[in-house]
Computed example of a mutant assay.
Amino acid sequence: MSTSSRFVHLHVHTEFSMVDSTIRVPAKPDQADPKKAKQPNLLSRSVEMKAPALAVTDLNNMFALVKFYKAAEGVGIKPIAGADLLITEDGQDPWRMTLLCRDREGYLSLSRLLTRAWMEGHRNEGGVAVHPQWLKDGCQNLFALAGRHSLAGRLASEGRHDLAEQQLADWQRVFGDGLHLELTRTGRDGEESFNQFALMAAGQRGLPVVATNDVRFLSPDDFDAHEARVCISTGRVLDDPKRPREYSREQYLKTPEQMAELFADIPDAIDNTLALAERCNVEMRLGTYFLPNYPVPDDETLDTWI
Rank of each mutant, 00 (worst) to 15 (best):
N61Y: 15
T186N: 14
V8M: 00
D30S: 08
L238Y: 09
V19E: 10
V237W: 09
D58I: 07
A51I: 00
W305E: 08
D268R: 10
W305K: 12
R236S: 14
P267Q: 07
A81Y: 04
P34I: 09
T301F: 05
D90K: 11
P94G: 03
G91Q: 06
D30L: 08
Q166S: 14
P292N: 02
E283A: 06
M200R: 15
D162I: 01
F263A: 11
K242C: 00
G176Q: 07
P292Y: 00
P297K: 09
R216N: 13
G178D: 03
I306K: 13
V210H: 00
F197A: 05
F68Y: 12
T212V: 11
M97A: 08
A269F: 00
N272T: 03
L151S: 03
T115Y: 10
D221E: 15
A156E: 08
A144S: 03
S248H: 08
F68P: 06
A264N: 06
T212K: 00
F223S: 12
E73D: 07
E165C: 03
S17I: 11
D303P: 01
S219K: 11
G106V: 02
C280H: 04
D20L: 05
R104C: 01
N124K: 01
V282N: 07
R205T: 00
D239C: 09
K70D: 13
R279F: 01
D84P: 00
Y294P: 01
L163A: 15
T88E: 11
S219H: 12
L10N: 06
G127R: 13
T3W: 08
D33A: 12
A144I: 02
P94T: 09
P267T: 04
Q251R: 14
F16C: 03
Q167C: 14
R45M: 14
